[in-house]
Design a protein around this nucleic acid. Structure first.
Ligand SMILES: [Zn+2]
Ligand SMILES: [Zn+2]
Ligand SMILES: [Zn+2]
Ligand SMILES: [Zn+2]
Lengths: 159, 159
DNA sequence: CGCCGATTGATACAATGTATCATGTTACGA
DNA sequence: TCGTAACATGATACATTGTATCAATCGGCG
Protein backbone atom coordinates (compact mmCIF):
# COMPACT_ATOMS: atom_id res chain seq x y z
CA UNK A 1 0.00 0.00 0.00
CA UNK A 2 2.70 2.41 1.04
CA UNK A 3 4.68 1.37 -2.00
CA UNK A 4 1.86 1.92 -4.45
CA UNK A 5 1.35 5.44 -3.20
CA UNK A 6 5.02 6.26 -3.38
CA UNK A 7 5.27 4.81 -6.89
CA UNK A 8 2.44 7.06 -8.00
CA UNK A 9 3.77 10.09 -6.20
CA UNK A 10 7.22 9.47 -7.61
CA UNK A 11 5.78 9.12 -11.06
CA UNK A 12 3.95 12.38 -10.71
CA UNK A 13 6.97 14.45 -9.89
CA UNK A 14 8.91 13.22 -12.92
CA UNK A 15 6.98 14.43 -15.92
CA UNK A 16 3.73 15.87 -14.70
CA UNK A 17 4.91 19.00 -12.96
CA UNK A 18 7.20 19.98 -15.80
CA UNK A 19 4.41 19.53 -18.23
CA UNK A 20 2.05 21.64 -16.16
CA UNK A 21 4.61 24.39 -15.73
CA UNK A 22 5.32 24.43 -19.46
CA UNK A 23 1.63 24.67 -20.20
CA UNK A 24 1.19 27.53 -17.76
CA UNK A 25 4.03 29.52 -19.33
CA UNK A 26 2.59 28.87 -22.77
CA UNK A 27 -0.89 30.04 -21.92
CA UNK A 28 -0.41 32.51 -19.13
CA UNK A 29 -2.08 30.23 -16.62
CA UNK A 30 -1.10 29.31 -13.08
CA UNK A 31 -0.38 26.09 -11.27
CA UNK A 32 -2.31 26.98 -8.16
CA UNK A 33 -2.69 25.49 -4.71
CA UNK A 34 -6.06 23.97 -5.61
CA UNK A 35 -4.83 22.39 -8.83
CA UNK A 36 -1.85 20.91 -7.03
CA UNK A 37 -4.14 19.57 -4.33
CA UNK A 38 -6.37 17.76 -6.84
CA UNK A 39 -3.29 16.36 -8.54
CA UNK A 40 -1.91 15.15 -5.21
CA UNK A 41 -5.12 13.33 -4.35
CA UNK A 42 -5.21 11.60 -7.72
CA UNK A 43 -1.53 10.71 -7.40
CA UNK A 44 -2.24 8.95 -4.12
CA UNK A 45 -4.55 6.41 -5.79
CA UNK A 46 -4.07 3.52 -8.13
CA UNK A 47 -7.77 3.63 -8.99
CA UNK A 48 -9.94 6.35 -10.46
CA UNK A 49 -11.82 8.80 -8.23
CA UNK A 50 -15.09 10.55 -8.94
CA UNK A 51 -15.23 14.33 -8.66
CA UNK A 52 -17.20 14.05 -5.44
CA UNK A 53 -14.79 11.52 -3.96
CA UNK A 54 -12.05 14.03 -4.67
CA UNK A 55 -14.11 16.74 -3.06
CA UNK A 56 -14.50 14.64 0.09
CA UNK A 57 -10.72 14.21 0.29
CA UNK A 58 -10.07 17.90 -0.25
CA UNK A 59 -12.54 19.31 2.26
CA UNK A 60 -10.65 18.28 5.40
CA UNK A 61 -7.66 20.31 4.17
CA UNK A 62 -9.67 23.14 2.66
CA UNK A 63 -13.21 23.51 3.88
CA UNK A 64 -14.09 25.87 1.06
CA UNK A 65 -13.68 23.38 -1.77
CA UNK A 66 -16.76 23.16 -3.99
CA UNK A 67 -17.91 20.91 -6.83
CA UNK A 68 -17.36 23.69 -9.33
CA UNK A 69 -13.83 24.19 -8.07
CA UNK A 70 -13.00 20.51 -8.35
CA UNK A 71 -14.39 20.32 -11.86
CA UNK A 72 -12.46 23.41 -12.85
CA UNK A 73 -9.21 21.96 -11.58
CA UNK A 74 -9.94 18.68 -13.35
CA UNK A 75 -10.68 20.50 -16.59
CA UNK A 76 -7.36 22.28 -16.34
CA UNK A 77 -5.48 19.05 -15.66
CA UNK A 78 -7.24 17.23 -18.48
CA UNK A 79 -6.48 19.98 -20.97
CA UNK A 80 -2.88 19.74 -19.86
CA UNK A 81 -3.05 16.02 -20.63
CA UNK A 82 -2.01 14.84 -17.17
CA UNK A 83 -5.40 13.50 -16.06
CA UNK A 84 -7.80 11.19 -17.89
CA UNK A 85 -11.50 10.99 -17.46
CA UNK A 86 -12.99 7.48 -17.40
CA UNK A 87 -16.30 7.83 -19.11
CA UNK A 88 -17.40 4.34 -18.20
CA UNK A 89 -17.22 5.16 -14.50
CA UNK A 90 -17.50 8.96 -14.53
CA UNK A 91 -14.24 9.26 -12.70
CA UNK A 92 -10.74 10.63 -13.07
CA UNK A 93 -7.23 9.24 -12.92
CA UNK A 94 -3.70 10.50 -13.15
CA UNK A 95 -2.01 9.92 -16.48
CA UNK A 96 0.94 7.54 -16.33
CA UNK A 97 2.56 8.88 -19.51
CA UNK A 98 2.25 12.64 -19.16
CA UNK A 99 5.20 13.41 -21.45
CA UNK A 100 2.86 14.43 -24.25
CA UNK A 101 -0.85 14.42 -25.02
CA UNK A 102 -1.78 11.03 -26.35
CA UNK A 103 -4.36 8.45 -27.17
CA UNK A 104 -3.81 5.06 -25.62
CA UNK A 105 -5.79 2.54 -23.65
CA UNK A 106 -6.92 2.21 -20.07
CA UNK A 107 -7.47 -1.30 -18.76
CA UNK A 108 -9.83 -1.24 -15.82
CA UNK A 109 -10.31 -4.16 -13.45
CA UNK A 110 -13.98 -4.31 -12.60
CA UNK A 111 -13.22 -6.27 -9.41
CA UNK A 112 -10.55 -4.21 -7.66
CA UNK A 113 -10.82 -1.00 -9.67
CA UNK A 114 -7.13 -0.96 -10.57
CA UNK A 115 -6.37 0.93 -13.79
CA UNK A 116 -3.39 0.27 -16.03
CA UNK A 117 -2.51 2.65 -18.83
CA UNK A 118 -1.06 1.42 -22.10
CA UNK A 119 -0.01 2.86 -25.41
CA UNK A 120 -0.30 -0.11 -27.69
CA UNK A 121 0.75 0.50 -31.25
CA UNK A 122 -1.16 -2.44 -32.80
CA UNK A 123 -4.40 -1.24 -31.26
CA UNK A 124 -3.80 2.32 -32.44
CA UNK A 125 -2.98 1.07 -35.94
CA UNK A 126 -6.05 -1.16 -36.13
CA UNK A 127 -8.44 1.57 -35.00
CA UNK A 128 -6.80 4.02 -37.38
CA UNK A 129 -7.36 1.65 -40.30
CA UNK A 130 -10.95 1.08 -39.24
CA UNK A 131 -11.53 4.82 -39.26
CA UNK A 132 -10.07 5.14 -42.74
CA UNK A 133 -12.14 2.27 -44.03
CA UNK A 134 -15.33 3.98 -42.84
CA UNK A 135 -14.30 7.46 -43.93
CA UNK A 136 -13.81 8.85 -40.42
CA UNK A 137 -10.87 10.95 -39.37
CA UNK A 138 -10.68 9.80 -35.77
CA UNK A 139 -9.65 11.93 -32.81
CA UNK A 140 -6.79 10.69 -30.68
CA UNK A 141 -8.61 9.19 -27.79
CA UNK A 142 -8.07 6.99 -24.76
CA UNK A 143 -9.97 3.72 -25.13
CA UNK A 144 -11.46 2.13 -22.06
CA UNK A 145 -11.27 -1.63 -21.74
CA UNK A 146 -12.81 -3.42 -18.79
CA UNK A 147 -12.09 -6.88 -17.48
CA UNK A 148 -10.47 -8.69 -14.60
CA UNK A 149 -6.81 -8.25 -13.72
CA UNK A 150 -4.45 -11.19 -13.15
CA UNK A 151 -4.42 -10.80 -9.39
CA UNK A 152 -8.21 -10.78 -9.08
CA UNK A 153 -8.50 -13.77 -11.40
CA UNK A 154 -6.01 -15.70 -9.30
CA UNK A 155 -7.82 -14.77 -6.12
CA UNK A 156 -11.23 -15.82 -7.43
CA UNK A 157 -9.84 -19.09 -8.84
CA UNK A 158 -8.60 -19.95 -5.35
CA UNK A 159 -12.09 -19.21 -3.98
CA UNK B 1 -34.69 12.01 -44.28
CA UNK B 2 -37.57 9.73 -44.97
CA UNK B 3 -35.16 7.18 -46.38
CA UNK B 4 -32.89 7.17 -43.33
CA UNK B 5 -35.82 6.52 -41.06
CA UNK B 6 -37.10 3.69 -43.20
CA UNK B 7 -33.67 2.09 -43.39
CA UNK B 8 -33.49 2.06 -39.62
CA UNK B 9 -37.03 0.90 -39.18
CA UNK B 10 -36.58 -1.84 -41.74
CA UNK B 11 -33.42 -2.96 -40.04
CA UNK B 12 -35.20 -3.16 -36.72
CA UNK B 13 -37.87 -5.52 -37.88
CA UNK B 14 -35.37 -7.98 -39.32
CA UNK B 15 -33.34 -9.23 -36.42
CA UNK B 16 -34.27 -7.19 -33.41
CA UNK B 17 -37.78 -8.37 -32.77
CA UNK B 18 -36.90 -12.02 -33.17
CA UNK B 19 -34.07 -11.56 -30.77
CA UNK B 20 -36.28 -9.85 -28.22
CA UNK B 21 -38.94 -12.51 -28.49
CA UNK B 22 -36.37 -15.27 -28.09
CA UNK B 23 -34.98 -13.58 -25.02
CA UNK B 24 -38.42 -13.18 -23.51
CA UNK B 25 -39.24 -16.84 -23.98
CA UNK B 26 -35.91 -17.79 -22.46
CA UNK B 27 -36.32 -15.65 -19.38
CA UNK B 28 -40.06 -15.41 -18.89
CA UNK B 29 -40.06 -11.72 -19.68
CA UNK B 30 -42.37 -9.68 -21.86
CA UNK B 31 -42.00 -7.46 -24.87
CA UNK B 32 -44.36 -4.79 -23.68
CA UNK B 33 -45.90 -1.70 -25.20
CA UNK B 34 -43.43 0.59 -23.43
CA UNK B 35 -40.39 -1.41 -24.49
CA UNK B 36 -41.61 -1.43 -28.08
CA UNK B 37 -42.17 2.31 -27.91
CA UNK B 38 -38.63 3.03 -26.73
CA UNK B 39 -37.30 0.74 -29.44
CA UNK B 40 -39.39 2.52 -32.06
CA UNK B 41 -38.07 5.93 -31.05
CA UNK B 42 -34.48 4.72 -31.20
CA UNK B 43 -35.12 3.08 -34.55
CA UNK B 44 -36.28 6.39 -35.96
CA UNK B 45 -32.88 8.00 -35.40
CA UNK B 46 -29.49 7.64 -36.94
CA UNK B 47 -27.95 9.36 -33.95
CA UNK B 48 -27.97 8.49 -30.26
CA UNK B 49 -30.64 9.85 -27.91
CA UNK B 50 -30.33 10.61 -24.23
CA UNK B 51 -32.82 9.05 -21.85
CA UNK B 52 -34.53 12.41 -21.40
CA UNK B 53 -34.71 13.03 -25.12
CA UNK B 54 -36.44 9.68 -25.41
CA UNK B 55 -38.77 10.66 -22.60
CA UNK B 56 -39.71 13.86 -24.44
CA UNK B 57 -40.57 11.85 -27.55
CA UNK B 58 -42.62 9.32 -25.59
CA UNK B 59 -44.70 11.74 -23.55
CA UNK B 60 -46.91 13.00 -26.39
CA UNK B 61 -48.02 9.39 -27.01
CA UNK B 62 -48.11 8.35 -23.38
CA UNK B 63 -48.31 11.13 -20.84
CA UNK B 64 -47.45 8.78 -18.00
CA UNK B 65 -43.93 7.97 -19.13
CA UNK B 66 -41.34 8.63 -16.43
CA UNK B 67 -37.55 8.66 -16.24
CA UNK B 68 -37.56 5.43 -14.28
CA UNK B 69 -39.72 3.79 -16.92
CA UNK B 70 -37.47 4.87 -19.74
CA UNK B 71 -34.37 3.66 -17.92
CA UNK B 72 -36.06 0.34 -17.18
CA UNK B 73 -36.93 -0.18 -20.81
CA UNK B 74 -33.42 0.77 -21.85
CA UNK B 75 -31.95 -1.65 -19.35
CA UNK B 76 -34.09 -4.44 -20.76
CA UNK B 77 -33.09 -3.60 -24.33
CA UNK B 78 -29.42 -3.38 -23.44
CA UNK B 79 -29.47 -6.72 -21.67
CA UNK B 80 -31.09 -8.15 -24.77
CA UNK B 81 -28.18 -6.74 -26.76
CA UNK B 82 -30.29 -4.65 -29.14
CA UNK B 83 -29.39 -1.23 -27.74
CA UNK B 84 -26.00 0.22 -26.92
CA UNK B 85 -25.22 2.90 -24.42
CA UNK B 86 -22.71 5.54 -25.51
CA UNK B 87 -20.79 6.37 -22.39
CA UNK B 88 -19.02 9.29 -23.99
CA UNK B 89 -22.33 11.08 -24.58
CA UNK B 90 -24.59 9.43 -21.99
CA UNK B 91 -26.99 8.37 -24.69
CA UNK B 92 -28.46 5.31 -26.33
CA UNK B 93 -28.63 3.91 -29.83
CA UNK B 94 -30.16 0.96 -31.60
CA UNK B 95 -27.77 -1.88 -32.37
CA UNK B 96 -27.19 -2.45 -36.07
CA UNK B 97 -26.09 -6.06 -35.62
CA UNK B 98 -28.60 -7.48 -33.17
CA UNK B 99 -28.16 -11.09 -34.26
CA UNK B 100 -26.09 -11.88 -31.19
CA UNK B 101 -24.53 -10.05 -28.26
CA UNK B 102 -21.19 -8.67 -29.32
CA UNK B 103 -18.32 -6.31 -28.79
CA UNK B 104 -17.51 -4.08 -31.68
CA UNK B 105 -16.91 -0.40 -32.28
CA UNK B 106 -19.07 2.67 -32.59
CA UNK B 107 -17.72 5.52 -34.69
CA UNK B 108 -19.33 8.76 -33.67
CA UNK B 109 -19.15 11.93 -35.73
CA UNK B 110 -18.75 14.82 -33.33
CA UNK B 111 -20.09 17.26 -35.92
CA UNK B 112 -23.35 15.68 -37.09
CA UNK B 113 -23.80 13.05 -34.39
CA UNK B 114 -24.11 10.20 -36.85
CA UNK B 115 -23.08 6.84 -35.41
CA UNK B 116 -21.78 3.93 -37.46
CA UNK B 117 -21.40 0.50 -35.90
CA UNK B 118 -18.60 -1.84 -36.90
CA UNK B 119 -17.30 -5.25 -35.92
CA UNK B 120 -13.72 -5.04 -36.95
CA UNK B 121 -11.72 -8.19 -36.42
CA UNK B 122 -8.26 -6.56 -36.45
CA UNK B 123 -9.30 -4.15 -33.70
CA UNK B 124 -10.78 -6.97 -31.65
CA UNK B 125 -7.64 -9.07 -32.12
CA UNK B 126 -5.33 -6.20 -31.17
CA UNK B 127 -7.22 -5.33 -28.01
CA UNK B 128 -7.41 -9.00 -27.08
CA UNK B 129 -3.63 -9.35 -27.38
CA UNK B 130 -3.12 -6.18 -25.35
CA UNK B 131 -5.27 -7.61 -22.60
CA UNK B 132 -3.29 -10.85 -22.59
CA UNK B 133 -0.01 -9.00 -22.50
CA UNK B 134 -1.11 -7.10 -19.37
CA UNK B 135 -2.74 -10.08 -17.70
CA UNK B 136 -6.32 -8.87 -18.11
CA UNK B 137 -9.16 -11.06 -19.26
CA UNK B 138 -11.16 -8.40 -21.05
CA UNK B 139 -14.93 -8.23 -21.26
CA UNK B 140 -16.49 -8.06 -24.69
CA UNK B 141 -17.20 -4.42 -25.01
CA UNK B 142 -18.23 -1.84 -27.55
CA UNK B 143 -15.46 0.69 -28.07
CA UNK B 144 -16.36 4.29 -28.75
CA UNK B 145 -14.32 6.19 -31.32
CA UNK B 146 -14.99 9.83 -32.05
CA UNK B 147 -14.03 11.86 -35.07
CA UNK B 148 -15.46 13.51 -38.13
CA UNK B 149 -17.32 11.58 -40.79
CA UNK B 150 -16.55 11.88 -44.51
CA UNK B 151 -19.58 14.00 -45.25
CA UNK B 152 -18.84 16.54 -42.52
CA UNK B 153 -15.20 16.71 -43.55
CA UNK B 154 -16.20 17.41 -47.14
CA UNK B 155 -18.66 20.05 -46.03
CA UNK B 156 -16.15 21.88 -43.84
CA UNK B 157 -13.45 21.71 -46.53
CA UNK B 158 -15.84 23.53 -48.87
CA UNK B 159 -16.31 26.19 -46.15
C1' DC C 1 0.17 51.32 -4.91
C1' DG C 2 -3.26 50.23 -8.52
C1' DC C 3 -4.33 47.76 -12.70
C1' DC C 4 -5.56 43.52 -15.16
C1' DG C 5 -6.36 38.94 -16.27
C1' DA C 6 -6.67 34.51 -14.05
C1' DT C 7 -8.71 32.08 -10.38
C1' DT C 8 -11.75 31.09 -6.65
C1' DG C 9 -16.03 31.25 -3.56
C1' DA C 10 -20.71 31.01 -3.14
C1' DT C 11 -24.89 29.87 -4.70
C1' DA C 12 -28.12 28.07 -7.44
C1' DC C 13 -29.44 25.10 -10.84
C1' DA C 14 -29.44 21.54 -14.77
C1' DA C 15 -28.91 16.87 -16.30
C1' DT C 16 -28.63 12.14 -15.46
C1' DG C 17 -29.82 8.08 -12.93
C1' DT C 18 -32.02 5.13 -8.90
C1' DA C 19 -34.89 3.44 -4.83
C1' DT C 20 -39.24 2.34 -3.11
C1' DC C 21 -43.67 0.84 -2.87
C1' DA C 22 -48.28 0.57 -4.36
C1' DT C 23 -50.80 -0.73 -8.44
C1' DG C 24 -51.68 -2.93 -12.74
C1' DT C 25 -51.08 -6.71 -16.21
C1' DT C 26 -50.36 -11.30 -18.08
C1' DA C 27 -49.52 -16.17 -18.34
C1' DC C 28 -50.71 -20.31 -16.53
C1' DG C 29 -52.59 -23.88 -14.02
C1' DA C 30 -56.50 -25.49 -10.84
C1' DT D 1 -63.18 -19.29 -15.86
C1' DC D 2 -60.85 -17.72 -12.02
C1' DG D 3 -57.01 -17.16 -8.84
C1' DT D 4 -52.50 -16.24 -8.35
C1' DA D 5 -47.71 -15.42 -8.81
C1' DA D 6 -44.34 -13.30 -11.52
C1' DC D 7 -43.52 -9.52 -14.33
C1' DA D 8 -44.07 -4.77 -15.32
C1' DT D 9 -45.59 0.06 -14.58
C1' DG D 10 -46.87 4.57 -12.12
C1' DA D 11 -45.82 7.81 -8.90
C1' DT D 12 -42.86 9.99 -6.06
C1' DA D 13 -38.89 11.17 -4.06
C1' DC D 14 -34.19 11.27 -4.01
C1' DA D 15 -29.09 10.61 -5.29
C1' DT D 16 -25.31 11.66 -8.20
C1' DT D 17 -22.91 14.22 -11.56
C1' DG D 18 -21.94 18.45 -13.79
C1' DT D 19 -22.64 23.86 -14.99
C1' DA D 20 -23.83 28.83 -14.97
C1' DT D 21 -23.30 33.14 -12.86
C1' DC D 22 -21.28 36.81 -10.66
C1' DA D 23 -18.90 38.91 -7.07
C1' DA D 24 -14.59 38.67 -4.51
C1' DT D 25 -9.63 37.54 -4.51
C1' DC D 26 -5.06 36.64 -6.01
C1' DG D 27 -0.59 37.55 -8.31
C1' DG D 28 2.40 39.69 -11.31
C1' DC D 29 3.73 44.09 -13.27
C1' DG D 30 4.38 49.00 -14.22
ZN1 LIG E 1 -2.18 9.05 -20.23
ZN1 LIG F 1 -8.35 -6.58 -10.07
ZN1 LIG G 1 -24.44 -3.66 -31.83
ZN1 LIG H 1 -20.71 13.99 -39.58
Amino acid sequence: MRRAVKARAGHTSEGTLERLEALCRERGQRLTRQRRAVLRKLAAERRALSAYELLARLRPEDGRSTPAGVYRALEFLMEAGVVHRLESTRSFILCEHPDAPHGGQLLICRVCGQVVEAEDEPVAAATGRLGERLGFSLDPRVLELTGVCARCRARSAAH
